[in-house]
Nucleic acid binder design. Structure first.
Lengths: 137, 137
DNA sequence: ATAAATTCTATAATATTAGTAGGGTATTGA
DNA sequence: TCAATACCCTACTAATATTATAGAATTTAT
């Protein structure tokens, strides 16, 4: 399941994607428009900024805006940024790989292969869903 | 990601599936064979019993054994039993559906459709992985 | 200068997870 | 019958993660 953070991040990105080109959105606008607690959203937007999905302008008249095309932001990326691995165990993960305790002794746990198949299918599906595809429902 | 409980449940089921027909396994055997804390495993086996994957015999010479074919126990079922919904949000779930707070006001949140597509693909993949398929790696 | 906005760090409240403890109940076999 | 063995059940605890909130520092437009 998605964390609140990941869900809020998606809602915030959807909000930004729906604005006119070159429009800058203040945090408070996004918070009210997408029903997100403002102070919590601040942290989320900073995370999105550090990961280069959005950029910001400080000070009066400042705010946030997309710097990555809404067609190129996938659900897989947002999931990984806020919730980590897509695979069901670390030993089956591409981006967050680590051997599980049992893998060490048995070299490979029995679960790994099956979980990698599931990861591949889930990842493919998640890469197919973009902010743009969500905006036009 | 899978909880420890779900992972241990899978390991325990794998252990049982590897035993000879009609063999009864004591909790302590499974715990040592699959590297699972014994008292924690007790709870997990009881959950598996209540969900009719295994049955048990009490008293001396007692233990646990599979009552569902290893070909018919899927990863999807174990995930749902221990970790709940497969979908990324409750509003996109088949077995654990509930409207999210935003769905109420907007009737449907923008995320729902995309998340249902992901759920469908993940579910298909998870139903394809059985205890039997994991035993023969 | 002042107001408005982002940025940053710390902290609090809550929920979940992972595991432990300890006794109760059923069955076997001497 | 009685003791040993093994499942059954509930409660509790410790650690961790999640979901925020608070408050001050910094930047920018006017």
């Amino acid at each position: 399941m998605l964390s609140q953070k990941a869900k809020y991040a998606l809602k915030a990105l959807l909000y930004l994607a729906e604005q006119e080109e070159n429009h800058i959105s203040r945090t408070i606008e996004i918070a009210e428009g997408a029903h997100i607690p403002k102070k919590f959203l601040e942290q989320i937007l900073l995370d999105l900024k550090r990961a280069r999905f959005v950029s910001s302008k400080q000070g009066k008249m400042g705010g946030y805006y997309l710097i990555k095309s809404k067609h190129d932001i996938t659900l897989a990326e947002i999931h990984r940024l806020f919730d980590g691995a897509i695979a069901l165990l670390p030993c089956a993960s591409l981006n967050f790989y680590e051997p599980c305790s049992d893998c060490k002794t048995e070299n490979e746990c029995n679960l790994r292969h099956g979980l990698m198949m599931i990861r591949d299918e889930t990842l493919k599906a998640m890469q197919n869903i973009t902010i743009a595809s969500l905006v036009d429902k």
